[in-house]
């Protein structure tokens, strides 16, 4: 029998880890467990996700920023709900929805960029969304600023495995006009977050 390729081994290991994980896996943790550097881990995850999600199974690999989690497919939500007591889904106010939308499409986004798009101060609303676990905050090592992304929980509530599945994502995420506009008003170049594309 032919020796399994290293890629296949990484994929099997990833599947096992994702199966075991009870919370989103960070890319750092995956790299540590697989004994690879983060770039290798990231491309392994991307490749694994693509094949796994394309096979039409009951579970899919969801990803936000650099966190990964194995979740049930959105079209199985009814059967899943019978087993999992539905997590109490809190009502969202208009401003919260607005902020979440901007963060979902533009994340990781700085507070300044968010405020520029919404035209209002967002400190309070961000804190609120953080407390409710709908948004996550992390330090961007290149921008030297805190950036915000939607949380894995919120992504799951939307029944998506990636923010890129949002309607008109390409347009609202990286549209040239938005780029120019933000560059014009903030004086910086807010690069849209570009992951290594899976395909």
């Amino acid at each position: 029998m032919a020796k399994a390729s290293p890629t296949i081994d990484l994929h099997r290991a990833l599947e096992a880890l994702l199966f075991l994980a009870g919370k989103p896996f960070s890319m750092r943790k995956i790299a540590e467990l697989l004994g690879t550097d983060q770039r290798t881990a990231r491309s392994a995850v991307d490749a694994f996700r693509t094949t796994w999600n394309a096979r039409g199974g009951g579970t899919v690999v969801a990803m936000v920023d650099s966190e990964v989690q194995l979740v049930t497919h959105a079209d199985l939500h009814e059967i899943a709900e019978q087993y999992v007591k539905d997590e109490t889904r809190s009502e969202l106010t208009r401003p919260q929805l607005e902020a979440l939308t901007v963060i979902a499409y533009r994340g990781p986004i700085t507070k300044a960029e968010l405020e520029q798009i919404r035209g209002v101060h967002c400190g309070l609303i961000l804190r609120n969304l953080l407390i409710r676990g709908l948004v996550e905050e992390r330090r961007d090592p290149e921008k030297h600023e805190d950036v915000y992304t939607i949380s894995m929980d919120f992504l799951r509530h939307l029944g998506l495995t990636d923010a890129r599945e949002l309607p008109e994502y390409e347009h609202l995420h990286g549209s040239g006009i938005i780029q120019q506009y933000l560059q014009h008003v903030t004086g910086t170049t807010p690069e849209p977050h570009v992951d290594a594309p899976a395909v």
Binding site: K23, A62, L70, A74, H77, E81, R89, R156, L160, T161
Partner: peptide
């Protein structure tokens, strides 16, 4: 309510 569900906690 079309959501994805995940394992609640580590076994």
């Amino acid at each position: 309510g079309v959501a994805c569900y995940a394992t609640e906690r580590a076994p």
